[in-house]
């Protein structure tokens, strides 16, 4: 029993919570860019939180259901319609066999998550169904969803429709969005003026923003502390001898446009990274549209850990609310 894809949207992919454990081999963690939204969508339809769903970017797909299912759409405000009838976001609704799920224009956010009761049941690759197109792993043949695809579903334990997550338990970025940054190993490479300027400047999301990384523009070029470049580092002051990149790390090639590495990013390379976006704010990046204004705010480890703990509490509150 399955879903039939009539139109795929712009960039719709099958994602679960990812495949941690292979980053040292250069295989990224992958998985939903807004993990909170995917978890909540799954909870609403009675799935395990890590079941595979669809990550939809900016533009919704058109899907025909071949069996009755419970569906929830979370994350971005991308209004769903079943045979033309509008459905609430962050709420479980029924789709009957033969009915079509379509979407209106995106209202806010960037990525919507569609969970379907039973979850998507494509074959896992390295322990995950998440699609990693560059490595041709997961999903359907390692690629994004295409028109004509038939997406298999798992066996569902049907629960009642109508479960809903109230607004205070949803999370979307503010405008301007605030992203908290923990300075990292190469922070000392920047001059004090550049260190300050990075946080004072107004940035916007660039058009080059996807699952690998989010680029930002509009701030002043960063100045580096002068040094004789070490052996193996390139001549550009933003180069280092190759190092590891973490999820969330911020590289600034040429000192010009910061790039935050996201779920499908490379695991290492020769750009200095000034620090990392704290884990609690990574989901928010997945909801940023191009041209969105952004401020980076400096935090210490204590605040980063407190924020992580707050996010866990929010997830626990959703679990409690949904019983």
């Amino acid at each position: 029993m399955s879903l039939k894809v009539i139109q795929p949207g712009l960039s719709t992919s099958i994602q679960d919570l990812g495949r941690p454990g292979y980053f040292h081999l250069g295989i990224p963690i992958g998985g939903a860019m807004d993990r909170f939204a995917l978890r909540v969508a799954n909870m609403l339809v009675g799935n395990p939180e890590g079941a595979a769903g669809l990550e939809v970017v900016f533009m919704g797909p058109e899907i025909v259901f071949e069996k009755d299912a419970l569906v929830a759409v979370t994350g971005a405000d991308l209004p769903a319609k079943v045979d033309g009838k509008p459905q609430e976001g962050w709420t479980a609704f029924e789709v009957k066999a033969g009915q079509t799920l379509k979407f209106d224009f995106l209202k806010s956010g960037a990525r919507a998550y569609i969970a379907i009761s039973g979850g998507i049941d494509t074959p896992p690759a390295l322990g995950s169904r998440s699609t990693y197109p560059i490595g041709a792993l997961g999903g359907i043949e390692g690629r994004n969803v295409q028109a004509g695809d038939v997406i298999p579903l798992g066996e569902a334990e049907m629960i009642e429709p109508g479960l809903n997550v109230p607004k205070e338990l949803r999370r979307l970025p503010d405008n301007p969005a605030e992203l908290r940054v923990l300075p990292g190993l190469y922070w000392h490479r920047l001059t004090p003026a550049a260190q300050e300027g990075f946080f004072d400047d107004d940035w916007t999301v660039a058009l080059e923003a996807d699952r690998m990384g989010y680029r930002f523009k509009g701030g002043k070029p960063l100045e580096f502390v002068g040094r004789e470049q070490p052996f193996g580092a390139g001549a550009d002051p933003s180069n280092i001898v190759d190092g590891c990149y973490s999820y969330g790390s911020i590289q600034v090639p040429g000192g010009l446009e910061p790039i935050v590495l996201h779920r499908d990013a490379v695991s290492g390379g020769g750009y200095f990274t000034l620090g990392a976006i704290i884990s609690a704010d990574m989901d928010l990046i997945g909801q940023l549209q191009p041209h969105t204004p952004v401020k980076f705010r400096k935090v210490g480890m204590d605040e980063a850990l407190k924020a992580r703990s707050d996010r866990k509490k929010m997830l626990a509150a959703v679990r409690a609310h949904l019983g």
Binding site: L10, F58, M59, F105, L106, L207, Q289, P290, H291
Partner: peptide, 9 residues
């Protein structure tokens, strides 16, 4: 004619 996606036109 409406824009299906955000971006630069």
């Amino acid at each position: 004619v409406l824009s299906p996606v955000p971006g630069t036109f």
